[in-house]
Amino acid sequence: MPTEELTESPNLGALYLKAAGTAPLRRAGRDAGLPDTEYVRSGITVDRDHLAEYNRLCGFGTRDELPITYPHITSFPLAVRLMTDRDFPFPLVGLVHVANRITRYHHVLVTDPMTQRVRLANPRRHPKGRQFDVITETSVGDRLVWTETSTYLRRSGSDESAPRPEGVSEVAAGTPTATWRLPANLGRRYAAVSGDRNPIHLSPLTAKAFGFPRTIAHGMWSKARCLATFEGRLPEACSVEVEFAKPVLLPSRVDFTERPGGSGKLFALHSASGKPHLKGRWSSEPE
């Protein structure tokens, strides 16, 4: 696998412009392969002001340890770089983030310099198109501390013969643990913190251009907000898996529900009418 070391974080603004300009050229078929490049960036440090804004927006408190979802923020530009490279087969805009699994082996302190490695893997058929994974490994020194698998779907017609992914157990709507009212500007605020400026999150006009009645919340904000409710209860070594279902339209009200499940918890987000937005589970047994 070719490995390329980056000395600074890729410029997301430039990458999004590149994605828009090259989208018409990416016409991959069902058997399209993925580039095997791995990007590596070392010496990643955390800006405390940025972390504080992320914590406020997602509901985390101030601690010496990074929130379990925060390394996703620092690795995201590497992932976008991979998905805008010339040999990546799909347009970036239009990819659907359908699932995310994070495994934490050790706490990462705000003072720890990180090394992150990002690659693409596991292209496969899906009943609605093609799926693939973005794999991230985060190390502090020589110790692996955190991994992530983000699964994306490229819709390209139905394929009923494709295997259906195994799902996270359902948590039924009703009797929520908490109810959150989400403001209309949540997508813009999280985009500013995360760098994920997909137009479906930024304004009603750009969201409507992609088929949504109004802006939608980021899936990784939803995951982070759910996990903030478990702050202080998540063990140091744990795995957290979520699947994203119906998009969260903004503004809206969502219901959060948690239930016991195995060595951890099952949890879910539903709309006020009971439609599922997210289902997840965390376990004290890292996968």
Score class of each variant (00 low, 15 high):
2 P>Q: 12
4 E>Y: 10
5 E>T: 11
6 L>S: 08
6 L>C: 12
6 L>P: 04
9 S>Q: 13
10 P>C: 15
10 P>T: 07
11 N>D: 12
11 N>C: 12
13 G>E: 08
14 A>V: 13
16 Y>W: 14
17 L>I: 15
24 P>C: 14
24 P>Q: 12
25 L>H: 07
26 R>I: 06
27 R>I: 09
29 G>Y: 04
37 T>E: 07
39 Y>C: 05
40 V>Q: 07
42 S>F: 03
43 G>T: 14
43 G>E: 09
46 V>A: 01
47 D>I: 10
49 D>R: 14
52 A>Y: 04
52 A>S: 13
53 E>C: 13
54 Y>A: 00
54 Y>R: 02
59 G>D: 03
59 G>Q: 04
61 G>Q: 15
63 R>F: 05
63 R>N: 09
67 P>D: 01
68 I>S: 01
71 P>C: 02
71 P>N: 03
73 I>D: 00
73 I>T: 04
77 P>Y: 00
77 P>M: 07
78 L>A: 05
78 L>N: 01
81 R>K: 10
83 M>V: 09
84 T>P: 10
86 R>S: 12
86 R>Y: 05
87 D>P: 06
91 P>F: 05
91 P>R: 08
93 V>R: 12
99 A>D: 05
102 I>D: 00
103 T>V: 14
105 Y>N: 13
106 H>A: 09
107 H>W: 10
107 H>G: 05
107 H>K: 10
109 L>M: 12
109 L>I: 06
110 V>F: 01
113 P>C: 14
113 P>M: 15
114 M>A: 08
115 T>R: 07
116 Q>D: 05
116 Q>C: 11
119 R>I: 05
119 R>D: 01
121 A>S: 14
128 K>P: 02
132 F>P: 01
133 D>G: 12
133 D>K: 12
135 I>V: 09
136 T>Q: 12
145 V>M: 05
146 W>E: 00
147 T>E: 04
148 E>N: 10
150 S>M: 08
151 T>C: 10
152 Y>D: 02
153 L>S: 03
157 G>M: 09
158 S>D: 15
158 S>N: 11
158 S>F: 09
158 S>P: 05
159 D>L: 12
160 E>F: 11
162 A>E: 05
162 A>R: 06
165 P>T: 09
166 E>N: 11
167 G>D: 14
172 A>S: 14
172 A>T: 15
174 G>I: 14
174 G>A: 09
178 A>W: 06
184 A>G: 13
185 N>Y: 02
186 L>Q: 03
195 G>I: 13
195 G>Q: 06
198 N>Q: 13
201 H>K: 11
205 L>G: 11
207 A>P: 03
213 P>H: 07
216 I>V: 11
216 I>F: 02
224 A>S: 14
225 R>Y: 02
226 C>N: 01
227 L>I: 07
227 L>H: 01
228 A>H: 02
228 A>C: 11
229 T>Y: 05
229 T>R: 14
231 E>A: 08
234 L>K: 03
235 P>M: 08
235 P>S: 09
237 A>L: 06
243 E>S: 15
246 K>Y: 02
246 K>N: 14
247 P>R: 04
247 P>T: 10
248 V>D: 00
248 V>M: 04
248 V>I: 15
253 R>W: 02
259 R>E: 10
260 P>E: 10
262 G>D: 13
266 L>D: 07
267 F>G: 00
267 F>P: 00
273 S>I: 09
275 K>T: 10
275 K>S: 12
276 P>L: 09
277 H>C: 06
284 S>I: 13
286 P>I: 15
